[in-house]
């Protein structure tokens, strides 16, 4: 599927789509005239995407998709989607895990440090504990595996890696990430894939944990 | 895929799995000895499912899946999963929509009314507005459709219907749901499907909106 992607720059949800397209060769063009907060509030946009959220995708044969995981799936290829039903189910598991478990904990920890929302010590402590639990789950899973599902990269790896970006960028300083060597190896493999670099550029791992500062 | 499902009773996430299995004929057995809060804290369970969450699935050939949408996918059939890539992408879109948009708003509205969470007027009002927006999106989408994707029931319908259960059960009283006739029609069709009734039994639509009571 080729088409137009509406998003603001540096949107990790849009990265999933653009990286999937790098692997599949799908022609996905980011609309250069899209202005977040303006375009997605126009009647024309809302007629296509009533929730007014991004990323949103308009396929060249008119299909309209408003969810980042669904868009990534549409522009992917069979390898990324999973060849067998068993692999497809496990890929869906990790996509859901990234959305439902990883993302809330990651944002609850990082957003206050970026000044995007008020800091709450209870929530912050809990988020850190949850992130440790999730990193440990991924680390154990990757002890015996190169990729999350099957022998090759899939939407599971792309989705989890893009959701981990802000953690590795802002708070997973070397001492904090030391216990998760298998995960660090996998993440470094991911960000060094040419198809990933083509979308997110050179990624700098966190050297000093960002903390909330009044 | 056949196997054992670990869950507590009346878990809408497990309903998705059991309804999918009703359509596909997959043999999914709920472990009668599972005791929530006890079994899912044992080392044996945590060795298979480190997050200790339910529903969790152990396939008859040993596959382990810990996410309800992935389990439903594994026990489904081709019709439910979507026949074309385009349909599969749209089915994933609605599954994500149920998880990422519907569920948070639904829980934020209903949990305090059930006494599960403290009541917060701001959050409650915002959740109600979000629910209205989502019901309206579904209602418009279903103006010209019998099911959410394609001509037949799919995982999209099962996932969205199960996520809507607590709203239709507790707070969508007749006057509140009156503006969403297409959605009400679709929801009623869903809960009257034999495969759905076999799992959730007779479903009673809300007659009086549950409100928070000190």
């Amino acid at each position: 599927a080729s088409g137009t992607l509406y998003t603001y720059p540096e949107n990790f949800r849009a990265f999933k789509v653009l990286i999937a397209a790098q692997y599949s060769g799908a022609q996905v063009k980011v609309d250069p005239n899209f202005q977040f907060g303006v375009t997605n509030k126009t009647d024309a946009f809302l007629a296509k995407f009533p929730l007014g959220k991004v990323p949103a995708f308009e396929g060249s044969n008119g299909e309209l998709i408003f969810d980042s995981n669904a868009i990534a799936y549409a522009v992917a290829n069979e390898q990324l989607r999973g060849k067998s039903t068993a692999d497809q189910a496990l890929i869906l598991q990790w996509i859901s895990f990234a959305e439902v478990e990883l993302l809330p904990a990651s944002c609850t920890w990082v957003f206050p440090c970026l000044g995007l929302m008020p800091f709450n010590k209870g929530s912050n402590d809990r988020a850190k504990e949850d992130v440790k639990k999730f990193l440990s789950l991924l680390n154990s899973h990757l002890l015996t595996r190169t990729y999350l599902v099957g022998e090759r990269i899939s939407l599971a790896d792309i989705s989890v890696a893009c959701t981990l970006l802000q953690l590795y960028q802002h708070v997973l300083e070397p001492s904090f990430r030391a216990p998760y060597q298998n995960l660090n190896r996998w993440f470094t493999t991911m960000i060094n894939q040419p198809q990933v670099k083509a979308v997110i550029g050179n990624f700098e791992l966190c050297s000093k944990m960002l903390t909330f500062d009044n | 895929a056949s196997g054992t499902l670990y869950t507590y009773p009346e878990n809408f996430r497990a309903f998705k799995v059991l309804i999918a299995a009703q359509y596909s004929g997959a043999q999914v057995k709920v472990d009668p000895n599972f005791q929530f809060g006890v079994t899912n804290k044992t080392d044996a369970f945590l060795a298979k499912f480190p997050l200790g969450k339910v529903p969790a699935f152990e396939g008859s050939n040993g596959e382990l899946i810990f996410d309800s949408n992935a389990i439903a996918y594994a026990v489904a059939n081709e019709q439910l999963r979507g026949k074309s890539t385009a349909d599969q992408a749209l089915i994933l879109q609605w599954i994500s929509f149920a998880e990422v948009e519907l569920l948070p708003a639904s829980c934020t509205w209903v949990f305090p009314c059930l006494g599960l969470m403290p009541f917060n007027k701001g959050s409650n009002d915002r959740a109600k507005e979000d629910v209205k927006k989502f019901l309206s999106l579904l209602n418009s989408h279903l103006l010209t459709r019998t099911y959410l994707v394609g001509e037949r029931i799919s995982l999209a319908d099962i996932s969205v219907a199960c996520t809507l259960l607590q709203l239709y059960q507790h707070v969508l009283e007749p006057s509140f749901r009156a503006p969403y006739q297409n959605l009400n029609r679709w929801f009623t069709t869903m809960i009257n499907q034999p495969q759905v009734k076999a799992v959730i039994g007779n479903f009673e639509l809300c007659s009086k909106m549950l409100t928070f009571d000190n």
Binding site: G37, L116 | C107, M117
Partner: peptide, 30 residues
Amino acid sequence: MALELASETVWFEKWRYDDAECKYHEQKNQ
């Protein structure tokens, strides 16, 4: 960037709801 990120759909309070749901069903099942 800040405006955009802050608009992201994220269930920040999810862990509170998870805990509440867990507690309720654990009590119900015991």
